[in-house]
Design a protein around this nucleic acid. Structure first.
Lengths: 187, 187
DNA sequence: CCTGTTTTTTACCATATGAGAAAAAATCAC
DNA sequence: GTGATTTTTTCTCATATGGTAAAAAACAGG
């Protein structure tokens, strides 16, 4: 069971009092497998941290589902476009397993960012790392075909790969599940 | 000719003295068409702002070029993975036209972020918007085929589209220039 | 343990895009 | 302005992936 305060200490150490204030302003929620953590069309009003479980963010287009990312234990995330702009989200988040999350509300977080320079810096670091991950994703999508992206995803996500269905993984890779099944068969 | 201070004021207003301090710590450089603004393998030690001109960031793989982004006037950017981690860059930046940039060094910027909460917040906003753009790019690459991505790029970049070669645009879209030529022909 | 549901695999054909080569057009340098 | 270079187009064929359908396998609930 990942702990949010511990995560923070590893991620970006804050002064004791500041960390306490941050943690004090979180709440915890549990979602059953298959439940929406965020529905598309809603404004994403929280940062999330996964204590336990697995989730995906995704969107639909022409009846097809496309997966932006999987989120597992000890990971902090949000739907950043909706969160930052406080506009309705094009993406939804669903729990793929029974999942417990720690939440910080946008308004509180903005308030804390203004109040504590350290939390602002924490947040900058968080978004910076998100950016770096997205750069890698874009590079991978440009340079590699589906088979190579699959192999890479497997090697980089050994820990969660068994927990993700073939269909979900295919939609993350941007191919049909039939194609992914074919790719797997060719090994 | 875009002005950096004006850009800042529009982007994220800082206190007068703070903005002055930021601007005072910039320098200006000019690159001829075709010159490297950053070579891959180098650590990206600056944030960039384009006063005038056009540039692309890209990487090579198996002799093929893949373009991450184009940067035109009045735009602030960096190679964020290399910049944030201060590690050698996998990406290079080349001027596509004679280009003038305003630079802020990483070390100075970090110093200013520590010193002025406002600059930290400025930077958070900058990285947040980068993240949002990258989310859009990833969505687009997942959901749309090359023809649709081309159409969308054109409509969203009317201003610079005539300045980008077909080959470069193809490599941004993740297809060959022959394919893009074919797509264009079908309109 | 059995039954219904979901997930994965397989097969067939259609289509988008890639690779290589070469022609045509546009641009650049002197 | 002219020749050289670069960019764009066109062509042909190969391949990866999509779409549809259906079978097989795995899983879930009573």
């Amino acid at each position: 069971m990942a702990d949010f305060a511990q995560f923070c200490n590893r991620f970006f150490p804050l002064e004791k009092g500041v960390l306490d204030e941050l943690v004090k302003n979180t709440q915890t929620k549990t979602f059953k497998k298959g439940e929406y953590i965020l529905k598309d069309g809603q404004v994403c009003r929280h940062l999330f941290f996964i204590n336990h479980g697995l989730a995906k963010s995704f969107f639909m287009k022409d009846g097809k589902e496309f997966i932006m990312r999987f989120f597992a234990e000890d990971f902090m995330f949000s739907v950043f476009d909706s969160y930052v702009q406080q506009t309705p989200s094009n993406y939804a988040i669903i729990a793929l397993e029974d999942t417990t999350v720690t939440l910080i509300s946008h308004d509180k977080m903005e308030e804390l960012c203004k109040k504590h320079h350290g939390i602002e810096a924490f947040f900058r670091r968080l978004v910076s790392l998100v950016t770096i991950r997205m750069m890698k994703r874009i590079s991978g999508m440009l340079e590699e075909n589906a088979a190579a992206r699959y192999t890479q995803f497997v090697t980089e996500n050994k820990d969660i790969i068994q927990r993700i269905s073939l269909g979900d993984l295919a939609q993350y890779l941007g191919i049909t599940q039939q194609s992914l099944s074919r790719i797997r068969a060719q090994k």
